[in-house]
Design a protein around this nucleic acid. Structure first.
Lengths: 204, 204
DNA sequence: AGTTTGAGAGTACGACTGTTCACTGACTCT
DNA sequence: AGAGTCAGTGAACAGTCGTACTCTCAAACT
């Protein structure tokens, strides 16, 4: 039954991706709620009505963009968190974020912009993903010897602090551009080190 | 020469404020780049062309909203930072932010939404204000005995961490609504305490 | 081979947008 | 008292927008 991918389905996937790519490019200068369906199809070179074959509306496309942007990141973050000592984990985490901003700045800009943007379903999709990141970080922390004596709530508090800080760092890297990357990354590492210091003395 | 306020100018100020208020209300459900000039004037009950007597375009109105939202906050924050011991300062700061969110949630929502929004002048206006808050916090820290041995860069790093955390807290309070206020506030206090702990051991 | 399916094209619709221009008429200054 | 200013009006402009239709024709099925 393993029928070939299907020329038909492959073509459909291709234009669907083209719509998402075009939207992402338009979203560098505007926010989702002001990008029109027609604008996107025009950029792709497709009739406006073709849009409906792939997405219900622009909000639907936005949610798909969220999955594309953050879906693949869980594994990468997991790697960074598996790092043995604290210093290495900080360096690795910041490097992951910096690499993400470097290789796909448009995705990061989209996320920063729509995290509190005007389109509720997209906002919720991003919030869900970030909360999941928080849970993963908390789980990673819980497996460490330093976590002994910590309440689950405090672990979640710490994990949230890490995640929020990473989001702030990502958008700061974006604003600074490639030239300012090392400065922002250095700042982020110092902040994480300070937080890590606070963690070590939490139970005093 | 102290001529009366001027019925004329007073009336103008009044409709200008009405435009800003109407825009703010519309901005609870959309983002600035998708709110139209006509939409705002319609909400006020004024001809579309009257808008131009007060603002060049919606971006201009947005910048005015930023000043209105954050301009008056500097004094209030200064008070909180003048608090003697660390615990009191944390409590006071969080209380200030919580009060801001409680009394003018629409302003806070606007700021959170447009901080990374699609309208450049507004984004820059917010960034400028937040950077100024960072400078003020850093200056307050520098006056304390605990700041001995700290480099100016590290002080600014710490101040930025405080400010960024406050912004995150404000938008979390907004999302949670009045019922979740105490939970979020408690979380924010614990995070600030952890950061404060890191600060104390920074020079080890 | 013949039938069905479905991605995309094309047209048309009413509603809405920002901006222009000439205008009115109440307030302000001399 | 008379002239000037200027906040707000109202009509008209050329666009854009989302969506509802019908239609085509190549791929996928039987």
């Amino acid at each position: 039954m393993s029928h070939t991918v299907g020329i038909r389905q492959a073509q459909k996937q291709k234009t669907r991706q083209a719509l998402m790519d075009a939207a992402l490019r338009l979203l560098e200068a505007q926010s989702l709620s002001s990008v029109g369906l027609r604008e996107v199809t025009r950029a792709v070179g497709v009739a406006p009505t073709a849009f409906y074959r792939h997405f219900r509306d622009m909000a639907d496309l936005g949610v798909a963009l969220v999955e594309e942007s953050l879906g693949a990141l869980h594994a990468t973050i997991g790697e960074a968190l598996a790092e043995a000592d604290d210093a290495a984990r900080i360096d690795h985490s910041v490097a992951v974020v910096a690499a993400l901003v470097r290789t796909s700045p448009a995705h990061v800009r989209f996320l920063a912009r729509e995290q509190h943007g005007g389109v509720a379903p997209v906002r919720e999709a991003i919030g869900r993903q970030l909360r999941q990141f928080g849970d993963e970080v908390a789980a990673a922390f819980a497996d460490e010897p330093e976590a002994a004596g910590w309440s689950p709530e405090d672990l979640r508090m710490l994990a949230g602090l890490y995640v929020d800080h990473m989001v702030v760092t990502a958008s700061a890297l974006l604003e600074a551009g490639p030239d300012g990357e090392e400065e922002i990354a250095g700042l982020a590492r110092r902040r994480l080190r300070l937080i890590s210091l606070g963690r070590r003395h939490w139970l005093d």
